[in-house]
Write a protein that binds this DNA or RNA. Structure first.
Lengths: 196, 196
DNA sequence: CGAGTCGTTGAACGGAATCAATCGTCGTGG
DNA sequence: CCACGACGATTGATTCCGTTCAACGACTCG
């Protein structure tokens, strides 16, 4: 089971890399859907609006997240994609991707495997966010991320981003990590967290 | 874009329907993975255990949720599946599904579309759970579920199950719905909720 | 050098969880 | 048929803990 990445799978469909300033739209609702995207850096938020104008946030895509796969099966985008911070995204031509999937059963299967992994990760993250206690939430998150061999987690990005993943404030995360370390449950050395 | 369901897509792979009593295991870690499942009723929880014995809940699958798709690409199951309540599940033969995907590009594509929808739903639910305020969380949930035409949501299952989806206690959900109704934001008639 | 951000800690507040109680409904078995 | 138990729906009172606001040092970058 070789873990193919989205980028490897669709490398031949990649057309360009785009930089976005804060607040810039990658696409807007109703635009013809020509590309899929992958966030290389920053944060792009997918937002719909209710008739009363309430923002309905569909997804906050951060580094490594793919964006707008749903547009593969739709002629137009169904929401707005706005850069929350200065961001860079890789662009993949939709037609090329569809062609790849049509012509190559192996890549189709790899794509399904990719999605299946994504679904598993999302469900796990969903369980994390179902836990109210910050302590237990952080512990489950770390256990999920940890390499089974070493029981260590390398924190990618900042602690603030990790707090966003966990859907708690960064202050609470600092405190919680400090407590866990005091208890001896974890050991921190830089961006590496070891669980015992 | 016809919305094919998992059940329609893989109808020919369905082998049986199984009933589980509370606490019964559908499969356990290490078992050879022979089937995928879909929860028809009840609740099946996927759990892994850390070396210290802490439960790591991967997914609480309820009515309509598919289970163990990841096993498509693995010879054994990687977690335990335990019925939390008396449950019934539909069983789909893994080899048949793989055959279907190999031989039929259309169905592969439909499967990818299915996953893509699932991913979108999960991400949306993830955003819901990132909201701290019960009021706003319930509102976003309702907006997401609502039929865009009628702005109405039919609550499937009990309010308690809805509370689980929202990851708030059922007491808070009752109170929140009552408040929203008092404010005129929503109107409830039986299991139907209309948004103002 | 100053602006901006991350990491970290303190104090106070607010709101969701928790515990508890009541009512209604549904199914079950004697 | 009715008593009984189980569970969902609902509301009240109290507790708890995560958020919020605030402050500070360290660091990077222009």
């Amino acid at each position: 089971m070789n873990q193919v990445s989205f980028d490897e799978l669709f490398a031949s469909a990649k057309t360009s890399v785009k930089s976005l300033v804060k607040g810039e739209f990658l696409f807007q609702k109703g635009d013809p859907s020509t590309h899929l995207y992958m966030v290389l850096d920053g944060c792009v938020r997918l937002v719909r609006y209710s008739r009363e104008g309430d923002a309905i946030i569909m997804h906050s895509a951060r580094t490594g997240d793919s964006v707008a796969e749903a547009s593969l099966f739709s002629d137009t985008y169904h929401c707005n994609a706005e850069a929350m911070t200065p961001s860079t995204v890789a662009c993949y031509d939709k037609k090329s991707i569809l062609g790849i999937l049509r012509d190559s059963p192996e890549r189709s299967m790899a794509c399904i495997a990719l999605y299946s992994r994504e679904v598993r990760n999302l469900r796990a993250l969903l369980e994390v966010r179902a836990i109210r206690s910050a302590r237990e939430r952080v512990l489950l998150y770390l256990l999920l991320q940890a390499d089974p061999q070493t029981m260590a987690v390398r924190v990618s990005g900042t602690i603030k981003e990790m707090a966003q993943d966990l859907a708690i404030t960064h202050e609470t995360l600092y405190r919680t990590l400090a407590n866990l370390e005091k208890e001896g449950k974890i050991a921190r050395t830089g961006s590496l967290i070891k669980i015992r």
